[in-house]
Simulated scan of single mutants.
Amino acid sequence: MPAILVLADGRAFRGYGFGATGTSLGEAVFNTAMTGYQETLTDPSYHRQIVVSAAPHIGNTGWNDEDNESHGNKIWVAGLVIRDLAHRVSNWRAARSLPEEMSAQGIIGIRGVDTRTLVRHLRNYGSIAAGIFSGEAAQRPVDELVAEVKGQESMQGADLSAQVSTTEPYTVAAEGEKRFKVVAYDMGIKTATPRHFAKRGIETIVVPAGTSFKDIMAYEPDGVFVSNGPGDPATADDMVAVVRDILAAKVPFFGICFGNQILGRALGLGTYKLKFGHRGINVPVLNHKTGKIDITSQNHGFALENPAGEGKPAGGAAFTSDFGPATVTHTCLNDDVVEGVALDDGMAFSVQYHPESAAGPHDANPLFDQFIELMTQHTPNK
């Protein structure tokens, strides 16, 4: 089945369709991970994005019913671009193939693309609006397809968390003895995160994005968590206001990815769109408090501004906030992007990467224990 990937700058890549047939629009981004395509496709942070896999061979482990990262097992990517599709599934947990699952969920893919050239193009010129057209749609003139791609909404300024968040609160019970109760804001939360809390004796109440401070405090939480999620953090004014109330109330706070950007904004920092973002499972991050380097799993197209100023090292940069002195605790060793911030009194901290390691390395798992230590110090009776 003929298919074509069209970029808003006029570049076009022809290949063959797989999964569903038709038209899909989104922002073309690349992921450097060698494994974990199922976790990537079901990560709500990829909402409205066409993912280009830098790894050349995709689909060999099939699709199982255990590794989905979205509540409800939904695929969130707008489309998938790959070089080679595995002809045979080989994994003892596989229940079906990748194309079968994509077809069942209406997700369009294109294979046979020179992804080396495509990834280099995105790296050199940045993430860009794109579209996958397969079947009859691929026969239309390229100029028409480019115009359709250009007509879609920009990712910059997009408020997407409400589109991926749960509509009703739900609870993930603690495993064994319950030690703490945490309210987790679902900005696009991955299912592995509440599981990490549960293994540590934490009951997690997952609430919709934008839930009021008054409503979450009715749960009497020991701590508050804000998850990863899609979209532009500059649009999250309501969540920033909620986090400011949380900080003022001295409730222990932990955020990851989108939650890092929201905490940073609550502390007075701005955000900006990265040229091509960080998407992969081998991104090196330096913890400036411990000197330790973690290899991390990341998926973000926006970042916090460097409080030290443009051209100056971000790591360890101190800045003032309405809630006391704060510090940039983590930076990316590839490009010095801010990867974590914290209040100096320890009551709030966040990181830009995904410590739940789904998929990815386990280096950052201790961050969950850091949150437990913070809650223990704040409520010594527990």
Rank of each mutant, 00 (worst) to 15 (best):
H278F: 14
H300P: 04
Y185C: 00
V89S: 02
K312L: 14
W92A: 07
G62M: 01
P380H: 08
Q105C: 06
L247E: 02
L145W: 06
V142A: 11
P99N: 11
F254V: 04
V172H: 09
I262L: 13
A184G: 08
V113G: 00
Q152S: 10
T23E: 12
A342C: 13
V285T: 13
G229C: 11
V240K: 12
A308C: 12
F323E: 01
E153C: 15
P194S: 08
D215F: 00
Y46M: 03
N287E: 12
G255L: 05
Q352I: 06
N287G: 07
T296F: 08
Q49T: 08
G301A: 09
N299K: 05
Q370L: 12
K382P: 00
H330K: 09
P56N: 15
N334G: 08
G17T: 01
L85V: 09
S90E: 00
N287F: 14
A364R: 10
P221R: 07
F180W: 14
A218M: 14
R93W: 12
G176N: 08
Q152E: 07
D9F: 05
P284T: 06
V89P: 00
A129T: 04
G315L: 11
S297W: 00
L118F: 09
A33Q: 11
T42D: 04
A174K: 15
P141D: 08
L247A: 04
E66Q: 11
Q156G: 03
L333Q: 13
T290H: 14
R279T: 11
D238I: 10
S70L: 09
P366A: 04
V142G: 12
V172T: 13
H288R: 14
F30W: 08
R111P: 03
N282V: 03
D9L: 10
A314T: 08
I295R: 14
T117L: 13
A158E: 07
H300V: 07
M375R: 11
G36M: 06
N260C: 10
T42F: 04
Y46L: 10
G106R: 09
S321R: 00
G311R: 02
A209Y: 11
G26V: 05
D222N: 11
E39A: 12
M34P: 02
K150Q: 15
